[in-house]
Design a protein around this nucleic acid. Structure first.
Lengths: 123, 123
DNA sequence: CCGCATCCGAGACGATACTG
DNA sequence: CAGTATCGTCTCGGATGCGG
């Protein structure tokens, strides 16, 4: 998050930076599909993510204005997270990314295998 | 690059993972605009990237099948890098990301400022 | 129940110097 | 000129335990 230097003029970089971390896009996607959710529910829907890491992701998304944090004055404490307009709008480019992955995902995996083989051949 | 576990079903994750690192998307973009380039030329066009880091990025992109590496038997050594079909196809989602950034970039930066302020207020 | 503090390992980035 | 090696720093991911 060291605030982008746009010396290299790639407009899309801000968007990628915002979703660069492992779980951020998954959280956005999950919130988009299910509406406002509590951390507990988010963890359950996503699966395979620790509480701390989810919290880290939520903080990042909040700091980038992609989600809002609602706190209810109750006991036990209750919180939920919801997408902002900017967050919801991200679904459009995310869909484009998904289509690319659907079309070229196998190629990528195959290339990774080939590359791993070549490196083990040399040694 | 620890090979995705698709336990969390977000199809777009592969695409994000492929461009998750700082310079990867910039390199793809630069190659798309200028055609095949030698590392030297790439560095010059991009600006602000060290030789090692560019090399790291090129290796990653190659291992993911987004670029190809052409070696010419000359002296002094000559190499150039070119986008594959999968690499060129990435420009479509990248453009979508760019449009999002153009529309919501300011909101993101403003949110970051607000978030930074709140944290410094508390301390 | 939510979130924070701590500790650890893995990678990326960055600068520099060196080999083919 | 291309690429590697090394070193230091930073951040993410992951696990665990504590406090509000």
């Amino acid at each position: 998050m060291p605030r982008l230097d746009y010396t290299s003029d790639c407009r899309a970089r801000l968007a990628f930076e915002v979703l660069a971390n492992r779980w951020d896009s998954v959280v956005v996607f999950t919130l988009a599909e299910n509406g406002p959710l509590r951390p507990r529910a988010l963890r359950a829907r996503i699966g395979g993510i620790s509480a701390k890491v989810l919290n880290d992701a939520l903080r990042r998304l909040e700091s980038n204005g992609l989600i809002t944090r609602q706190v209810y004055a109750e006991a036990p404490p209750r919180v939920d997270y919801e997408l902002t307009g900017a967050g919801r709008a991200l679904l459009v480019p995310m869909a484009a990314m998904g289509e690319w992955a659907a079309r070229y995902g196998d190629e990528v995996l195959a290339a990774q295998d080939r590359f791993a083989e070549r490196r083990s051949d040399q040694c």
